[in-house]
Design a protein around this nucleic acid. Structure first.
Lengths: 208, 208
DNA sequence: TCGTATGTTGTACTCACGGTACAAACCAAG
DNA sequence: CTTGGTTTGTACCGTGAGTACAACATACGA
């Protein structure tokens, strides 16, 4: 099943839009066959079924994200700057592939139930952030927070939901402009927060 | 179909865990019948099908969230304080109903494809935040940002993903303690950001 | 006490779709 | 030509959602 020929792989992308639109359940194998031009029998020859189609498509997306973010994170800058770069990289890839992103949101449940994908999700999205936050504390460019795990999760959420929503809003005319817009908004939030200097001094105590 | 008897409604919750675990697709109507004690024929008498089961369960969750957040937002405090309260409220409800949350993530695609739920999602999660951000600028307790829409989206993502992840980590012994922990982490991020004072002066220019 | 309306449930059915089986054709490479 | 992988059409099977329907329960007003 692994290693399906390049030609088929590229044809398979023709199914992304379909799956994004109707969800995997709403999409019949026959539909996929028609949309991609690959006959059903051939699909089953290479792939283990519907899920494998999704797995292939999303696996690719996740690899692209992990790759781009990996590059962004590997520079010599301080963690704060690299965090900005990572945000930009992740949003850039996401906005370049809106239908894959829509497929991802739409079938998130299935995706997380596919073990290989679940792992890829983690390494593509969450781990780089977590790492960066820790490094930022070491190099002094990011603040020490009380609960690094929870904060990393939130940062991850801020970035990802922004990208996902952007993808869901139908593809834009200029994805890279959008990516820039969104990533500066996200960075602004994540780095500087929303409190005004005036209200910032009131320390939060124990809520509840 | 609307207005199913209270007794059945409460029985239906018995299916939440099941759906959370296996996804709606992985759950047969027969399974739901068995888990809830409501026979299949009766389910179909009241509900329009599998989707309606999900719609009912998630609709309830969303109502609870919208309600709790609504209360939090309605106080006399400044927007910044109310934002903290809203975060706490949303996470509180989410952590109290982990299996509903898991069902929500798992079948997000389906949920957003059910028009009534899509609207409820918006009003429960996104709109209060958006509103609060605008009010914070007016009352001076929150900073004016370049792209309020995108920032609101990110804040929404930060809160929601934190809650969702917490819900996915299996139910905890003390949900309200967890809610407090997570909500203070999220508030810390959203209000104060992560940049250290030292690195904060380097303004971000045009990325890309 | 009946009659009618409304809910409850079991059983049996239909039908769409995912997946499989298989045989025929195709296409290298040796 | 032969051999071994690939490609594809076609026919088929099993599962599970949804439907039909009849029998039964329950309530309630006349």
């Amino acid at each position: 099943m692994r290693k399906l020929p390049a030609k088929l792989a590229s044809q398979l992308y023709g199914a992304a839009e379909l799956i994004a639109e109707r969800g995997l359940d709403g999409t019949k194998i026959e539909d996929i066959a028609e949309a991609t031009g690959i006959p059903k029998a051939t699909i089953y020859y290479h792939l283990d079924g519907k899920n494998a189609v999704l797995e292939f498509l999303l696996g690719d997306l996740l690899d692209m994200i992990a790759g781009a973010v990996g590059v962004a994170v590997a520079s010599e800058e301080n963690a704060r700057t690299r965090l900005e770069a990572a945000v930009q990289a992740q949003l850039g890839v996401m906005l370049e592939h809106p239908s894959l992103c829509r497929a991802l949101v739409g079938d998130l449940g299935r995706a997380t139930r596919l073990p290989e994908l679940a792992a890829a999700l983690r390494t593509a999205f969450y781990e780089p952030i977590e790492q960066l936050l820790a490094e930022g504390v070491s190099d002094g460019s990011l603040r020490q927070v009380a609960d690094p795990g929870a904060v990393a999760l939130s940062v991850f959420g801020a970035i990802t939901v922004a990208g996902l929503s952007a993808a869901v809003e139908g593809p834009s005319a200029d994805p890279s402009a959008d990516a820039a817009r969104f990533s500066s908004a996200v960075s602004e939030l994540v780095l500087d927060g929303l409190a005004t200097p005036g209200s910032r001094d009131q320390r939060r105590g124990e809520p509840l």
